[in-house]
Amino acid sequence: MRAVARRLSLLLGVGMLLLLQACATVKSADASDPWEPMNRSIYQFNDAIDTVALKPAAQLYVKVLPSMVRTGVSNFMGNLGDVWSMANSALQLKGQATVETFMRINVNTFIGLGGILDVASEMGIEKRREDFGQTLGYWGVQPGPYVVLPLFGPSTLRDALAFPVDMKGNVTNSLADEPTRNGLLVTRLVDTRAGLLKAVDAIKASSLDPYSFVRDAYLQKRLNDIHDGNPPSSFDYNEASSKP
């Protein structure tokens, strides 16, 4: 797992270095995406990896495992993710969200068979997804330019810088047994991709420019996440990039 993490970090670092080098010479019509040519190249690389590896694995996963089993896997992985969401809710001083997420974890862990059953949602305890990028945004850190990360996909400069913290905060990475960590990492990746099979196919089939569609959807979602569903009516990337 450590060797894999080092390789991923190296790829991420190289990709970020290339993007930073490109920003001085690359121009884009979209203020949010000044590194668009480089981002498109990385998007195409990621799409190729997805086509030959991730999508076939996700299709096999859906074909082999019954829907009930896949739901249990998603619930289990979501319960692990709730731990880091709770930590970030606390960092954002969101008392109610922190308490409710703590309740979700305990209900699903002890009543929901370790998180396989999402009993908390059935009880009306809201699920919240928080990460360190959202925490930085909550405290006023601007998103910066749009970035496509090698292997990991859409991001912003702020979220990319927060990504290593999110990786470190993932409860899976604290497990002592390396095979278990590796297994959970792969399972989470394949399960996530399986949940996007129809959505990704629909985007590619209906959009004239899937890259732009994914970029705009991601930026809107992140703005919505940081403002807890109540984003400002407009957001000027030119103005944001001029702030310290």
Rank of each mutant, 00 (worst) to 15 (best):
Q134P: 08
P66F: 05
P66Y: 04
L117I: 11
N108D: 13
M68V: 15
Y138K: 02
G144M: 06
N79F: 08
T109F: 14
T51R: 11
D47G: 10
Q92F: 14
W84T: 12
N75W: 05
L93Q: 11
L151H: 02
L113N: 08
D131E: 06
E130G: 10
T109R: 03
A87V: 14
V73M: 05
V99P: 09
P154I: 04
G137K: 00
G115C: 06
F163I: 07
F110R: 01
Q96S: 13
V62P: 02
L157I: 08
Q134K: 07
E100S: 15
I116D: 03
K55C: 13
A97W: 14
G144T: 06
A87Q: 09
D131H: 07
L117S: 06
S89P: 08
S85H: 02
S74H: 14
P143I: 10
V52L: 10
I116G: 03
L113H: 10
F110G: 01
E122K: 14
I125Q: 09
P143N: 02
L136I: 05
L117W: 13
T135F: 08
A120W: 00
L54W: 10
V107A: 06
S67F: 14
D131K: 05
V147W: 09
L93W: 14
F132A: 04
N88P: 08
A90T: 09
L80Q: 00
A90F: 14
L60D: 01
L54Y: 11
I111T: 11
G124C: 04
V83A: 04
E122A: 13
M86N: 05
K63N: 10
L93Y: 13
G140D: 03
V165I: 12
L161A: 12
F102E: 01
A162D: 00
Q134S: 06
D118C: 01
P150A: 07
R158T: 02
G95D: 05
S121M: 12
T71N: 15
